[in-house]
Amino acid sequence: MGAALERNPQLEPLITQPSEAQFSEAQPRRRDRTPVALYATLLPPLVWMTLLYFVPIAILISYSFWRLEAFDIVREFSLVNFQTIFGNTAYRTVIVRTVMTALGVTAIDAAIALPLAFFITRFGGRYHTLLTLLVILPLWSSYLVRVFAWKIILGYNGILNSALLSLGILQQPSQIFLYNQFSTTLTFVHVWLPFMILPVITAFERLPKDLLEASADLNAPPLTTFRKVALPLVTPGLLAGSINVFALTMGDFITPNLIGGPSGIMLGNVISSQFGVSYNWPLGAAFALVVMLIVFLALTVVVRRGALE
């Protein structure tokens, strides 16, 4: 490419110069004003972000390198919190469990969202908007309400148990539905599903129909068309949805607290207990940093694969 440009030196001015000249001649005053408007618009959010985002993160990071001694926070640099986190099998288990749960929830949501979004965009027809709205509808109710709803459905005297009893499938209400990894995963899959479906729907909407038809015309079976044509083109949407779901699951502590099992705590619970019951803010901050690093790592992977294009 560089060599091509060198061989045609006249190409460069041809592309850039006329447009720039045209712009400055035609609207000389506009160029002067644009930056002012831009800064005026950007300044308040910038102040906002600095005060409420960057400063707190800086404070959090500095806390994570301090330590707690006899109920007092010692403001000296030390790595003792990270030693505790990575040196303790219990904490390592929690990290692994949280990442696995987040990955599992993401995979299940992706598996549900793909066919659903495909159906809505291809066969939704005039109900397309309505169906999309129905996907977003749960978001209008409180997150807590949705979590509690699962508690009512899966509980010992819950809806599921009552149904199975009246159908004669069970003789006794079963305890296997609630307070374990299954109920946690199920609830996560349900409450975060809209965050996966929406970007995937958008991706399918932008998928040109004629590409699929061209693929079919060239005798590709439907599955091959999906695999070779549709999937690569909706992947950015899928990845954007995945990072949503992954990040939301990584940081959540309410669902494992309300629905999860006695030995099923996640990183969010550890963080909340360090900031709450145990008053070990440095260790809690270190855990929060670990969560952020994992999410940023996932974000990097996803962005490299073109999620935000």
Partner: peptide, 8 residues
């Protein structure tokens, strides 16, 4: 720490 171990 013991409590967190019990819970994890």
């Amino acid at each position: 720490q013991l409590w967190n171990e019990i819970r994890s």
